[in-house]
């Protein structure tokens, strides 16, 4: 896979280049700020761009850079690697796009397998969210959505949490050791309980289910 990256921390940048290369990916560009990355990607095609959130142009250059990249190259996958696991940033990330996008903690992608899995899923159009963050959203919904969430069973919450990490039905089924068919049943039940429109496409409704949780946090503000 062709990967470009921008991070103002030289140590982290160098480590990431080494790990990407060890995983067999081609690093087509490596910059210390967002503006240089945008210039570079104007001429150099890539599958996924990896961005720090808090980098130049300040204050959160990763987000403004990603907006420009999404406009210039709609097919380019975007992976945010940050030191911060904040709901605020997650919502901003999802405002940029809900496909081929990811937000993970810097210290949680430190293996060839995890890094490649994350990049592949993003290139294939999925959303990948740091499990810690997804978990927090599902475990601690804000009070005004609590009633609605209370109608979900424990198993449905498990399924929704895995959905919010961007997992496929097959992926959820294998993690929970059940058949894919029963995951489909759980998901339709979640959609119904969360009041999501039945005429929308499956992928679209998955995103809406995840966003329902994110909004439950935002609504309380």
């Amino acid at each position: 896979m062709r990967v470009a990256l921008a991070d103002d921390g030289a140590l982290f940048r160098d480590g990431l280049v080494m790990l990407l290369e060890a995983a067999g990916h081609e690093v087509v560009g490596c910059t210390a700020d967002g503006d240089t990355l945008v210039e570079l990607l104007a001429t150099e095609p890539a599958d996924v761009a990896v961005l720090d959130i808090r980098m130049p142009p300040e204050p959160d250059g990763g987000l403004s850079t990603a907006e420009r990249l999404r406009a210039d190259h709609p097919e380019l996958g975007l992976l945010f690697l940050s030191h911060y696991a904040e709901t605020h940033y997650l919502i901003r990330v999802l405002n940029i796009g809900t496909q081929a996008i990811g937000y993970r903690l810097k210290e949680k992608v430190g293996s060839v397998e995890v890094l490649s899995d994350t990049l592949t899923r993003i290139r294939d159009g999925e959303i990948v969210i740091e499990p810690v963050l997804a978990q927090r959203l599902v475990d601690r919904p804000s009070s005004n959505r609590r009633d609605m969430l209370a109608t979900l069973s424990d198993r449905e919450l498990d399924v929704l949490r895995l959905m919010s990490e961007g997992r496929s039905n097959a992926g959820i089924a294998s993690l929970l050791f059940v058949a894919a068919k029963s995951i489909e049943k759980h998901i339709s039940s979640i959609f119904m309980k969360l009041g999501l429109p039945s005429d929308a496409a499956e992928q679209h409704r998955r995103v809406l289910a995840v966003l329902t949780f994110l909004r439950s946090v935002q609504d309380s503000g």
Partner: peptide
């Protein structure tokens, strides 16, 4: 420290590989 630790996890990943 936070940046150093994040970079260290990548180096450890390289070692694991």
């Amino acid at each position: 420290p936070a940046l150093r630790i994040a970079a260290l996890t990548l180096r450890l990943g390289l070692l694991a590989q």
